[in-house]
């Protein structure tokens, strides 16, 4: 089960509101390499992961990604909160406002709704962990593109934290992959 803590994992502030940027950063809320996809990918894969280190890693990283989903949701919310419709209509956020108002919705920067097709979950643990390693790199690259397009130091600070987490997760998944290969060697010898 999951239990909520009434805190963010890391502060999420915006120096000034920016609906155009909201419609870009939203891709980490509901896009192909976003935090929702990451979380659901890992907490779907964990059930059949054969080694204990792998189950725990998928469970905890999947949990942390959901906290990142909340951080990105906070940024989007703060970027557009209270901005009147006649201002929003002249921004990239207008299509989002037409369909959702200022409510958060898991979609990518083009407006495509989140889909489970973004993720894969295999019983073959090597296939799953390789997918996870790639996912962390794609998310890291996406954060770099988003950081490159921002001049708000508060947003850059939060996105830099999230980028760094992708690097740490990549490292942990790499360790799980090594442990998996050891496990499979043992299995072949003794199994």
């Amino acid at each position: 089960m999951w239990e909520y803590k009434k805190i963010l994992e890391y502060p999420a502030n915006v120096r000034r509101q920016d609906p155009d940027y909201a419609s870009l950063v939203v891709t980490q809320f509901g896009g192909p390499d976003g935090e929702l996809a990451a979380s659901l990918r890992y907490i779907s894969q964990m059930y059949t992961m054969p080694i204990p280190e792998g189950k725990a890693t998928l469970n905890n990283i999947g949990t942390e990604e959901l906290a990142h989903f909340e951080i990105i949701g906070t940024l989007v919310y703060k970027l557009v909160e209270g901005i009147p419709a006649d201002v929003l209509k002249n921004t990239r956020f207008a299509p989002h406002y037409a369909q959702h108002g200022r409510a958060n919705y898991p979609a990518d920067a083009f407006g495509n709704a989140w889909t489970a097709s973004y993720i894969q979950s295999h019983e073959d643990p090597v296939a799953s962990i390789q997918e996870d390693l790639a996912a962390e790199q794609k998310a890291r690259a996406t954060y770099e593109y988003l950081i490159d397009m921002s001049d708000d130091p508060a947003i850059i600070d939060t996105l830099s934290f999230l980028r760094e987490r992708e690097v740490v997760h990549f490292q942990r998944f790499g360790e799980v992959l090594d442990l998996l290969y050891d496990y499979m060697d043992d299995y072949e010898e003794w199994g």
Binding site: K5, E9, A56, T57, N60, E64, V168
Partner: peptide, 13 residues
């Protein structure tokens, strides 16, 4: 909280 998250992840492997 973050220090716990980070040490938990490390300890898992």
């Amino acid at each position: 909280n973050f220090a716990m998250i980070e040490t938990v992840l490390f300890l898992n492997t």
